[in-house]
Amino acid sequence: MNSANRSPFLGFVYRAYVVIFFIYLVAPLLAAGVFAFNDSMFPSLPWQGFTLDWFFNDTEPKLGMFHDDRLLRGLGNSLYIGVIVSALAVIAGTCNAFLFVRKEFPFKNALYVLMVVPLVIPGVILGIAILVFASMIANGIDNVFDFNPTWLRPGIPLIVLGQFSFLTTITSLVIAARLQKFDESLEEAALNLGASRGRVLATVTLPYLVPALFSAFVVAFLVSFENFNTTLMLVGSDAPLTITMYDRMVKVGSTPVLNAVSVFLMIGSGLLALLSVVVQRNKEDA
């Protein structure tokens, strides 16, 4: 009974628009993906035949991504950073969720806004701010104790801190949304039956939160994995995959191995996202 259904012509135009929009959405991903399988030195037409060389070939000049040491090291660094920062962000996010859903304290609304603020600070600025602040502390330590704390210089620890600073907002919001729906009478029932507070938390509340913790972890991991702006400012010698790829793109130009990495990333993040949706849905049905 909507307006668009009343006139068949308008309805058709509307549907065509939506279809065109989804083509627009998919076109660049398709373009990036298809040329990973083209047997050519450049990711462009003409089509030279199907190949998996850009994934598995082990000799130059067509070095596949699974034999390209720099890309693999980048992938390793990305995984390492992603797992650490997501775990930290989920822990901090859980604390924040309990803080804002369960506790009452002065200036709660103002502090809540403060919790959301990292999402509206541009990533580049989060990056430089943490770079500057860490360097100030490092220089201070260097001057006073005559010792250079390398973990405060650009590198993986700073990348973790930089990504943590805004991922925690995301995880807090995801977990808080789930905690809000929790029926507190379940906890009271367990307490009345003689369980201790810690036991209630471990056997009633946390199991209820597991799907949210899991999806918060996945979201944080994916955002960390693909983050570029904050990471760019904090990167040292151990570059994660996005930075390695960008370097390659700027210095060497685009080669189909970058298409292969793109395909790999699309499949990987697609599967993870799907997994998170499935877990969420199963738990909600149950």
Partner: peptide, 10 residues
């Protein structure tokens, strides 16, 4: 869920 980089590359 696809990185900016991949989209720009596309």
């Amino acid at each position: 869920w696809v990185s900016d980089l991949v989209r720009a590359f596309g």
